[in-house]
């Protein structure tokens, strides 16, 4: 499983690097090649504007990773901070913060991100903002739950009675114990952010043309499904392989780091 996951991810990495090296142009239009099948010039065929699907896929995966990594880092930092504060102090602070997360959780799945993206407008920056605004909640919940129990561990109590400051307690005595569970959560969240980004782009709320994005490509591919079924197949398979690889990687990390989540 681990090998398979690394293999797929490695394959994509090499492909992206090769694409950059060969200077494949994802926005070059060839009107003779519109929706053409895979051939010698266009290895994976061309899209509805005669652009190379391969070049666009490779650029798309770059954007996708960029968004996923940015969003995951920001949401993790914010969410963990909020979770630590709520879990460490407890009481009123905890209640207030958790009530806010409850409100965010009352919106099913990606709905809130759609709503934010809708009012913020399309584009990469707004897309990242919309995903960040909704993504911190799960980290906050996770961190808070763990901190609540870690707070009463003996080593924390001991450090506290020895006069350790709050930042020191949190940074030296609680956070390190959260690291492994957060790493696993972050891996899964990479995949889910990628799905969310693709969903928003699919709905026309994410990355805008002529920039490449898998979600937008999939939308175009669905539109031309009758004339060019290879387009939707290629984009669909690519997307599946990547998400599968990341999730398998997450499973591997979970087992390797021996993290138990209650889900």
């Amino acid at each position: 499983m681990k090998k398979f996951s690394l293999f797929i991810l490695g394959l994509w990495l090499i492909a992206v690097l090769l694409g950059r090296l060969l200077q494949l142009n994802p926005t070059q239009i060839d009107l003779n090649a519109i929706l053409s099948n895979p051939n010698a010039q266009f290895w994976l065929g061309a899209d509805d504007l005669g652009r190379s699907i391969l070049a666009r896929l490779l650029r798309g995966v770059e954007v996708s990773f960029l968004v996923a990594i940015t969003v995951t880092s920001i949401t993790m930092a914010v969410g963990v901070l909020i979770g630590l504060i709520a879990g460490f102090y407890g009481g009123k602070v905890d209640q207030l913060l958790m009530q806010i997360t409850d409100i965010f959780l009352a919106f099913p799945g990606i709905l809130l991100a759609i709503a934010f993206a809708a009012v913020l407008g399309a584009g990469l920056g707004n897309l990242i903002m919309a995903l960040c605004l909704t993504g911190w909640v799960s980290y906050a919940r996770l961190t808070r739950g763990q901190t609540l129990s870690l707070r009463n561990r003996q080593h924390v109590q001991a450090a506290e009675s020895l006069g350790a400051s709050v930042p020191r307690l949190i940074l030296r005595h609680i956070l390190p114990l959260l690291a492994s569970i957060l790493v696993v959560e972050a891996t899964y969240s990479l995949a889910s952010v990628m799905i969310a980004e693709a969903s928003l782009s699919f709905l026309g709320l994410g990355i805008q043309a002529p920039n490449a994005s898998w979600g937008a490509m999939l939308r175009d591919a669905v539109r031309y499904m009758l004339v060019a079924p290879h387009y939707v197949l290629i984009v669909g398979t690519s997307l599946m392989s990547l998400i599968l690889a990341i999730n398998l990687g997450g499973d591997y990390l979970r087992d390797a780091l021996d993290v138990r989540t209650n889900e």
Binding site: A198, A221, V222, V232, I243
Partner: peptide, 22 residues
């Protein structure tokens, strides 16, 4: 397990391709 990780906008077009187009 793998199917549950697949988003609707992947599964939907695939079903459409298989059952409606092909």
């Amino acid at each position: 397990v793998r199917l549950s990780a697949m988003p609707a906008f992947w599964l939907g077009p695939m079903f459409m391709l298989i059952f409606a187009v092909w």
